[in-house]
């Protein structure tokens, strides 16, 4: 990783957190997180028997979880963002190794030997399998459903603006479609015993 990435680590943590919380410039906040942390993540995962692709996947997952924690006010800023992301990366990668059945003695030993003073972020990381299952259920919806639901719940778009994205007659039709899509997703969730049993912990992100 080239040194010029470190020269761009110049926004204070408080500003990055504000950009995420207020939705003032969330995309720029993500870019800043990449500039300040991706190099460290890549080095760590490659040292720990991972590939470039592993580093990219793990980093995206860590950023997703971090942003959700910030939005839910679960990140209080007791440590720097960089320290927190690094701890999340380690935790997520070790979990991934176990999942792959490659938790060799070395990894386990490494995990046990972790400095006791190192930040424990395990309680901040939702069950990865459940989260993945949940996201797969959304991905399994039709394209129109995904478009409507994401536009409404993630982009916070008004119905009349969503109508412009789609080939529907009026807002009421879009509203009905949104209802059906969400209901379908809800039924898929409640029909999944694993998810249904963990609703509360998934909602509270703990």
């Amino acid at each position: 990783m080239r040194s010029n990435q470190s020269t761009e680590r110049n926004l204070p943590d408080s500003l990055i957190l504000q950009m995420i919380r207020t939705q003032a410039a969330p995309d720029e906040a993500i870019r800043q997180l990449y500039r300040m942390q991706f190099g460290l993540t890549k080095s760590y995962i490659k040292q720990q028997s991972g590939s470039d692709e592993d580093a990219e996947d793990i980093f995206q997952e860590v950023i997703l979880n971090f942003i959700e924690l910030v939005k839910k006010d679960k990140f209080r800023g007791d440590s720097s963002i960089s320290t927190f992301l690094y701890a999340m990366t380690r935790n997520t990668w070790l979990n991934e190794l176990k999942k792959r059945g490659r938790a060799k003695a070395r990894d386990e030993k490494f995990e046990k030997a972790r400095d006791t003073e190192e930040m424990d972020v395990s309680h901040y990381i939702v069950n990865r399998e459940l989260k993945s299952l949940l996201l797969n259920l959304v991905d399994g919806l039709g394209d129109t459903c995904k478009k409507i639901l994401v536009a409404f719940y993630f982009e916070n778009m008004a119905m009349r603006d969503i109508l412009n994205l789609l080939d529907y007659e009026n807002e009421q039709v879009v509203r009905n479609k949104k209802y059906k899509c969400l209901k379908q997703l809800e039924q898929n969730i409640s029909g999944n015993t694993q998810l249904a049993a963990n609703l509360k912990s998934l909602l509270s992100y703990e």
Partner: peptide, 18 residues
């Protein structure tokens, strides 16, 4: 369940953006 469905959609949107 509906609340979790909405959360899932938000996560999905964020994941796509990331």
């Amino acid at each position: 369940s509906l609340s979790l469905a909405q959360e899932a959609v938000r996560s999905y949107g964020l994941k796509s953006r990331i």
